[in-house]
Design a protein around this nucleic acid. Structure first.
Lengths: 259, 259
DNA sequence: CAGCGGCCTGACGTTAGGTGAGAGTCAAGA
DNA sequence: TCTTGACTCTCACCTAACGTCAGGCCGCTG
């Protein structure tokens, strides 16, 4: 007969529970092993380990520890009764969960109907000019109708608020860029913002594929097309040129790293 | 436009939440209504009530309040995402519950097989020796086969659980008696335990009729038959003699009072 | 003006441990 | 032999979502 006597850490590693948990079980009298004479260390014997196994089993059932304690101190026939009771509770929880899942589905669907839109026309309302209907025509020429319509569908799936979020974020990035207009176009911070800008443009295009030529073309349009109102204060040529430079740096950097 | 302004108790009755809950939601900044100028009472307006409705909806989904707070302060499209995440969590919980139900069923079935019995043979397995098969033969000689079989049927009608309960209780009484072995056999406490013992033995005999001679015979057998293992630690003659004396006192006392 | 009900804040308890802090213990290396 | 690091102990505060007092303020009514 092996006289196993394990200390807390050994038990913890053996069973996967934390030392604190063992302390706790001792504190509430659920599992109180003997102690060493002098140092007062906890020593777990075979019986203790068996009891711990039982505890972990019942704990798996989401049973409160106090109830587990009663259960383990009761004979088998009482345990069956308790387990049956507990089983019923679990069954109730399950049916409640099913109800919850249904309700949550309804809620989601409701929210989607509230925010989903149906036509591309609706989509382009409130769009930034550089990505509006004019761009759409050019895009169809360049990428083909099918792909453009796919992008539009992608965007519409974001829901009205989702698209608005993109629009807002783009405006925000423009503002941030305007604030660092005095820096070199290849400045770290500027390039960081340009990266954000690029990601947003890609989102508008409904793609994650890097269309460097298109992006460069967009940068160019900022300068040549006076209709653009990036900062909300009219056409700003110096800023547009700053942007074009910064974007050029960004593209050169990216295509150099991932040719 | 009606300018509803409700106090905590009115809101509580209207919505079914407790006043304390409203205080709590205020404390964590989830729902902070305006206050009256002088008395600092909380006043809930229409918007507050609507927000409370939302809170209760999401709370139904077992969503932590902190998360509900973020959700309600976020636009619709973010909500959908959060709800979808949360839906997944619920789905995981559900599948975990199913696993739990299976495991608990196995455990119950295991315990039942451990304790269930079908035949008198099985009945006597795990029986205390003084009431086991040997006793049965003697009992038939003394009381007749019919009556013994009736007793057995009685016992089996208690169900597997019930019989095990009796066995356990008898063992428990033995232990309690062992603990007071040092007292006089006519000590109040000892006699109280002997009374419990007597009741249990009568239950095993499937009768409520006082068979004093049989009980005295049993007490005698404790001493003479070395197979008996009352304390779970082998034959214990001094303890058996203590028991015989105590039972003798008990019988004398009872027959004196109810001749 | 006293009393009563409603309201307030503050504080402690609940579960099943997590996360230290401060101190004692043990075995091994310098 | 002393020191160091790993391990252990207890004490005690923290979590979520409130329940449950306790002590004190407010307003309305007899």
């Amino acid at each position: 007969m092996k006289n196993v006597k394990l200390k807390v850490n050994q038990v913890a590693e053996l069973t996967g529970v934390s030392v604190r948990t063992l302390h706790h079980y001792d504190a509430i009298g659920l599992l109180s092993p003997e102690r060493t004479e002098d140092s007062n260390y906890r020593l777990y014997g075979e019986m203790d380990l068996y009891r711990l196994q039982q505890i972990l089993l019942y704990r798996e059932f989401d049973m409160p520890l106090i109830q587990i304690k009663e259960l383990l101190d009761a004979p088998d026939y009482d345990r069956i009764e308790e387990l049956l009771k507990h089983r019923n509770q679990l069954e109730e929880r399950k049916s409640r969960l099913n109800t919850l899942l249904n309700t949550i589905d309804k809620t989601i669907s409701h929210l989607q109907h509230k925010t989903r839109m149906k036509t591309p026309k609706e989509l382009y309302e409130g769009f930034p000019a550089e990505l509006g209907t004019t761009y759409r025509k050019e895009a169809i020429k360049r990428f083909g109708k099918t792909e453009v319509e796919q992008s539009e569908q992608q965007l519409m799936n974001r829901g009205k608020d989702g698209v608005q979020a993109l629009v807002d974020k783009l405006a925000s990035v423009h503002r941030k860029l305007k604030n660092v207009e005095e820096l070199r176009p290849n400045h770290e911070v500027v390039q960081e913002y340009i990266h954000e800008h690029h990601q947003l443009i890609l989102a508008f295009w409904g793609t994650t594929e890097n269309r460097w030529e298109a992006y460069a073309g967009l940068a160019n349009t900022y300068v040549t097309d006076t209709r653009f109102n990036l900062t909300g204060e009219g056409y700003d040529k110096p800023f547009a040129e700053f942007l074009r430079e910064a974007i050029a740096v960004y593209i050169k950097d990216k295509t150099a790293n991932n040719p």
